[in-house]
Structure formats: structure tokens, C-alpha cells
Design a binder for these strands. Structure first.
Lengths: 291, 291
DNA sequence: CACAATTACGAGGGTCGTAAAAATG
DNA sequence: CATTTTTACGACCCTCGTAATTGTG
């Protein structure tokens, strides 16, 4: 019977060109390789090497065998990888969200309800956003619009209202409300992974210069330490309190408000029943963050 | 390291549904299978079976693993088969001929010149006859026409003249020559595997009823024993002598004469040099069979 | 209690490494 | 004569089978 270890040794000899080299590479002795080669030739019943010289070389049979051996080895490795990946995916709930705020609520909730599951989340937003759910790249999708599809369940999460956050000394600090147009051309601090909000900023404040920070904690420090304006929202305000000595001014544009929904495939309804129930509680208490 | 034997055992368990069954099928003990399963789960790092009951059953991971294991096993078997087949083909010279007579000369000659090679021959004739050589389905091709192609070598073999063979008492026995038209409507004895000649008979004597015999020896006996007309040729007459008490009358039609050529790819020229030399000798002594 | 899978332990086969022999230029 | 492969032999690992144990209905 041909075994994988034999094929690995065969391929190694082919790759190194010499048995000594292959032996070193595999941390094996030359005799071991020599025996394996003879064994392979015995099993197949065909000579794989030219032994006329003191340097073994593959013959045509051997070259074919090596080529096919690579395929067998690759298939074998693929088996391990794919079974592992499949098992992992069956232990993982992946959430794809159009904005960061919903994840702050949804991910901890999932961790609580599915303690044995790994929760993985991804921030993403594009035109065919619903396909993420359909093509199975996630089990939960957080959208900024209500979804009415036959095979998809859609539940209201909450509405997030964007605010301008400035130090009390800032010229805009006294305003009761602002518009994106007031901000265009400013230099502002911004979180890098904003999903949906990125599109909003790009559209309504195209001239604004953003200093982008990908670490959320670091951004908080930066905001505290600098006089530059930044954004906050009904959600972040609930989270971090008002201790950063900043004035938050609501942004009056419609685009500064987003209502998020959480969607999943109908076939997962049973699995997400408890989750759906908790979402109802959450959506009943809007505009504040809960631990 | 996963080895093939483990995958074979895994697949056997999947096929039989139970370890006991698989053990019997593989002529192994249950503990051996049990251990292998545990080993596989250890290596992959993933559970493959549901062990809640006293009856093991594959879980989703296991089903995927089995599916992939089948692929690995199949690839492994394909390796053995293909290398064997490749080696065999490298030890075989296959000849494709448009008629039987040239093979009687060429095959023994090849056996003599290539004593380590297996000579395989096939009778075939069709419109794209040259493609047989081009598509690598044979190394030697015997054609009824001269070939003038850049990458093909073509050597004259000999000309075969068809004769009508009848008992002395037959009405046609006294003729100095006959035409196919004289034969149409007769009942005749014929060898089954005639290649090119089949087309000739079908075209020139469509009404003739043929009693076909696939065993060449048996056909000879039949001819000797019966009064039915049959065909002979310059080649068969040289082979079997004139001891069958039959009269051979040449068939005057052009179609009753064929000149055969032996072709091979130019890249095989070196290999067939000695063979080509012997063909020259043969073509210099036409119309008789040599041993 | 019957049936199936798992653990325990000893036997055998196979692969490995070291060392010596053979082959080749 | 040097380099490389092959053979010889002993050690160890690993798989296997038998028998006892566990688990399930």
C-alpha cells in the first residue's frame, strides 16, 4: 500500500535532486529514503529512477509519479485544512455590520447567548449589501435599512444620531444644531473603520480633512487632548459619558441619522430566537448604550 | 501525519455505517478502527463522529472528511494506475494498419528488432487515418497511400494484389482474370478484420453475401473444406503455398490492388532506423511473403 | 442483558538510524 | 579516491489482535 509519507519522500527527492539533500531536508537518513524509493517501485511495479550513475535521477515514470504524488499530498493537506475550517465556521457566528455602533451591542449580546461560539465581526458597506447574507459570508447582517425579503428576518435595532463634538471654546460650540455644510473644509478627528458613515462624510463634507485613527482607545485620548472637532453620536455619548469636556451639537441633516436593523436567514430563525427576543428589549430603549 | 490507511478505514466506516461492519469488510478488528478514528480526530483536531449513543455516526465534519478522503484515495490509486500505464506504453510499440497483410510482415520484424518491447497492433481505416499518428494513438501507421507531411516519415512496404480463390470446378475457374462485377451476388467466405478491403468489397460487390469468419486459422480450414469462392492475395498465396487445391484468378480492377506504406513521426526516426533499413530490403522483393 | 465502542496489554511488522559495502567517475 | 547509493543489522515506534471494560437501550 502506498502511504503519504512515501510520496512526501519521493517529492522531496525530486525537489532536491539528490537523496542526501532530501534526507537532510526531511531530517531523515539516506538509507530511509533509499528504502522508500525501492518500496514505491515495488508497489507500483515500475522503475522510477535511473540508477546507471552514482547519482539517482528520475526517469519518465518517476517524473509522472512525482507530478501525481504532489496532487495526492495537496489533496491530503486540503482535507485537513477544509475540515478544520468547516468545524471552525460551525463554531463561529460572523456578523457583518454597516457601522460600528450596532456591533457594540450585538457582539456582547451574542457572546452572552452563545458562550461556546466564537463571534467574528466585520465592518463593510456596499451597494449589494444583502448578498453578504445570501452568499453565506455571514450569519448576521446589520443594515441601515429595513429588509423585506421572503427568506430573511429583519429586526429593528436602534437609531443613531450623529453629533459634532467640539471643545467649549470652538466657534461652533454655542450652536443649538449644525449642518454638514458648516463642517466642510475643517480638519477633524475620525475613526478609520466607520462603514456607512464613511460614505456620508465623503458625500457631505468632501473638503474636510480627516485625521484618521484606527485604534478606538487612542482616538478617545486624541479627542480629549486636542482642540480639533470630531464626531460623536447618541450611542458613543451613552457609552463614554460626558467626562471629556466637550460640547456635543446635533447635526441636523437627515443623513446624520441612521436606523439600524439586524437581519438573518429565515432558516436560522430557531437558532436566533433568544437573540431576537433580546433585540426587542433593546429596540424598546433607544438612543442609549447598555452594558 | 495522516496516512492513506487511515482514510481507507474512515471511508469504510462511512460506507458500512458501523465499525463492526467496516472491521469485517477490511479484515481488521474493531479496536483497530476505533484507534484510527481517534488518531484522525487528534491529527485534524476536530471531532468527526457523534459518540452520544453506542452507535457511532458521522457528524457534519466527518461527512466532509469522508468526502475529501475519497478524493485522496482516488488520487492515490490513479497515481499507481497512470504510472503503470505510462510505463507500459513506453514499453509498447503500437501499430495501426489499414489491412492485415502488412502486419504479418511488420509485427514479426518489430518483435525481432525490439525484443524487449511489447508489440500491439490494431486494424483500422477511416478518412482521417493520419490523425491516428498525430494524436499519439500509435507509433507506426500503415497506410494505403504515400504520405508527404513535414513531420512524418513514409516508407514503401509492398503492393498487395487481390485474387479470387475458387475450387477447380467453379464456373469462373477457367478465367484468366475476373472483375468485381463478376462476383457481385455470389456467396463468399471472408475474413472479418480486413480494414481497407472491407470498404472495397462494400463498394464493388454490394450484393455479395459474405460468410464472415474472425479466426484466421478457422477461415483457412473453411476454405479448404468448402466449394465457396473466397479471396486470396499475392501475400496470402506466398504465405500458405498452393496446397489448398484452389485456383487463384487475379482480379483486374484497380481497386483490387493496394500499395502499403509504413509511416512514423519524424521524432521517432532515430528509434526506427534499423526498422527502416529492413523495410527497404522488404520492399525490394515485392509480392511474396518472407519469413 | 445484548450489542457496540473503547481501553489495556502483549506480539509482530515496519521504519528508522548507524555502520559497512558497493558502484561510479 | 571521493561521493553517493545500497545493504546489513539492531532499536524503537506503531499498528494490530485478544481480552476485559464501559456505555447504551
Amino acid at each position: 500500500m502506498i502511504e503519504i509519507y512515501m510520496l512526501i519522500q519521493l517529492v522531496a527527492i525530486a525537489d532536491c535532486g539528490t537523496m542526501s539533500g532530501a534526507a537532510e531536508k526531511l531530517h531523515l537518513s539516506q538509507p530511509a529514503l533509499s528504502r522508500t524509493v525501492n518500496k514505491l517501485e515495488d508497489i507500483i511495479g515500475v522503475k522510477l529512477f535511473d540508477r546507471s550513475k552514482n547519482k539517482v535521477g528520475l526517469n519518465d515514470n518517476g517524473r509522472l509519479a512525482v507530478e501525481l504524488a504532489r496532487k495526492v499530498i495537496a489533496e491530503n493537506e486540503e482535507l485537513i485544512e477544509r475540515v478544520r475550517a468547516f468545524d471552525m465556521s460551525s463554531r463561529t457566528i460572523s456578523v457583518c455590520s454597516c457601522a460600528p455602533a450596532p456591533l457594540w451591542t450585538v457582539v456582547p449580546l451574542l457572546s452572552e447567548l452563545f458562550p461556546d461560539m466564537k463571534i467574528s465581526s466585520e465592518m463593510k458597506y456596499h451597494d449589494d449589501f444583502l448578498t453578504e447574507l445570501e452568499k453565506d459570508s455571514c450569519q448576521l447582517l446589520i443594515t441601515p435599512f429595513e429588509v423585506n425579503e421572503a427568506d430573511i428576518v429583519c429586526r429593528l435595532l436602534f437609531t443613531e444620531q450623529l453629533y459634532l463634538s467640539v471643545p467649549p471654546a470652538h466657534p461652533l460650540a454655542g450652536y443649538a444644531e449644525v449642518h454638514f455644510s458648516d463642517l466642510d473644509g475643517e480638519t477633524m478627528l475620525l475613526f478609520s473603520d466607520l462603514g456607512l458613515w464613511h460614505d456620508v462624510h465623503r458625500k457631505y463634507t468632501p473638503e474636510t480633512r480627516y485625521i484618521v485613527q484606527s485604534e478606538y482607545e487612542a482616538l478617545g485620548e486624541l479627542i480629549k487632548a486636542s482642540a480639533l472637532p470630531s464626531f460623536s453620536s447618541s450611542i458613543t455619548m451613552g457609552m463614554q459619558g460626558q467626562d471629556n469636556n466637550r460640547v456635543n451639537i446635533p447635526i441636523a441633516d437627515e443623513a446624520a441619522k441612521a436606523t439600524f436593523y439586524c437581519c438573518w436567514r429565515k432558516e436560522d430563525s430557531k437558532r436566533f430566537r433568544a437573540f431576537a427576543k433580546r433585540l426587542e428589549e433593546i429596540s424598546a430603549v433607544p438612543l442609549t448604550y447598555r452594558n
